[in-house]
């Protein structure tokens, strides 16, 4: 199966006022998204998930810069394209949905117009057929009374409906790749299930690949075929979803798994990974996770582990992948 997007050794840095050294937000991230599959990108806040996707889209903030690497999409390196060429791809071949459906729509333009204008921008349709197509896509994403909702303003719709509009807008050009940046984080659980089902249905119909950025492992289990786990700007583990949930190898991933709430006797405390994500300007030497790792040794603190293949494409950046039989916090 061929890959729709291949990111190779991506490095992204950020400048901030008054500091000379640039902070490396993403270092040497490689990631491949196979055609028609859903790939999850998991990690704590600030570990570089969104930065990775934004740099692929050419949407980094002004103080961000891609230092090196490439992002191959249909034979083109997205990181080398001009702004003009990139605009033709955005919303057309690759589109994005964002975390906050409340604020991702322009409050003073009707939702119908926002979608139909995106459509016209890329397809050159006239206003009437764009309108008809928009209503069609509204129906497809499950917006009731689509015709009437065409003229609604975003504030007249609930969060779930707005996210449906966003998905409709993102899918209207049948993109080859959909980047969903925490698409359900702001929604309540029942709506989340609906939205995820909608995304899966649309994917089945259009064959779109999805890059799903999330910190919710439940969503990953539900949606993804493959998962990349990021920590402090690096990929620390890559596995297909079954392997990840059955036999994740990296202590960080295992910590994430262990911190999922589950049915336990009353009074038992929820596991959490101690410490916080390291400062991007003061990365620990050796393994970046070592200061927080329960199993870290001298070797971990001094030497940097590579991303090793544990077999079957299961990659792990650890000297001691799950070899001690223990799990973090003593919970299994």
């Amino acid at each position: 199966m061929s890959n729709i997007l291949e990111i190779k050794d991506l490095c992204v840095s950020f400048a901030s006022d008054g500091v000379k050294e640039r902070a490396m937000a993403v270092s040497n991230v490689s990631l491949a998204i196979p055609e028609g599959r859903t790939v999850g990108l998991v990690g704590e806040s600030g570990c570089g998930k969104s930065v990775t996707s934004l740099s692929v889209m050419g949407l980094l903030a002004n103080n961000g810069r891609v230092e090196s690497g490439e992002a191959l999409f249909g034979g083109q390196d997205l990181l080398r394209l001009s702004d003009r060429e990139m605009r033709r791809i955005r919303g057309n071949r690759i589109s994005m949905i964002f975390q906050e459906p409340m604020t991702s729509l322009n409050p003073v333009i009707t939702v119908g117009r926002q979608v139909s204008e995106a459509l016209r921008l890329h397809s050159g349709m006239d206003a009437r057929s764009a309108r008809a197509r928009t209503i069609e896509i509204f129906e497809k994403v499950g917006i009731p009374e689509a015709e009437r909702r065409f003229g609604s303003y975003p504030h007249q719709l609930s969060g779930g409906l707005r996210q449906r509009v966003m998905i409709g807008m993102a899918m209207v050009m049948r993109p080859a790749l959909l980047i969903a940046d925490e698409p359900t984080t702001a929604l309540d659980v029942s709506i989340e299930a609906q939205i995820l089902r909608l995304m899966r249905d649309l994917q089945r119909e259009t064959g779109t690949s999805i890059l799903l950025i999330t910190h919710n492992l439940g969503v990953v289990a539900e949606m993804c075929d493959e998962v990349y786990v990021m920590y402090a700007g690096e990929v620390v583990e890559r596995a297909d979803v079954a392997t990840l949930f059955d036999a994740c190898a990296h202590p960080y991933t295992r910590g994430l798994m262990a911190s999922l709430p589950r049915m336990t006797p009353k009074g038992q405390r929820l596991y959490n990974i101690r410490g916080t994500v390291p400062n991007l300007r003061a990365m620990p030497s050796g393994c970046r996770f070592s200061p927080r790792c329960e199993f870290a040794t001298e070797k971990c603190r001094g030497e940097k582990p590579e991303l090793n293949d544990l077999g079957g494409g299961h990659l792990c950046r650890c000297f001691y992948p799950k070899d001690d039989g223990r799990s973090p916090g003593g919970i299994d």
Partner: peptide, 28 residues
């Protein structure tokens, strides 16, 4: 800095279209 501006950019809308079609009407 609003998300809808980023969303518009992610849809491939050009800089000046964003200024006039998305930002200006919000100032109205």
């Amino acid at each position: 800095e609003k998300e809808f501006v980023e969303a518009a950019r992610s849809m491939g809308v050009s800089r000046w279209t964003i200024a006039f079609r998305h930002i200006l009407p919000n100032c109205l």
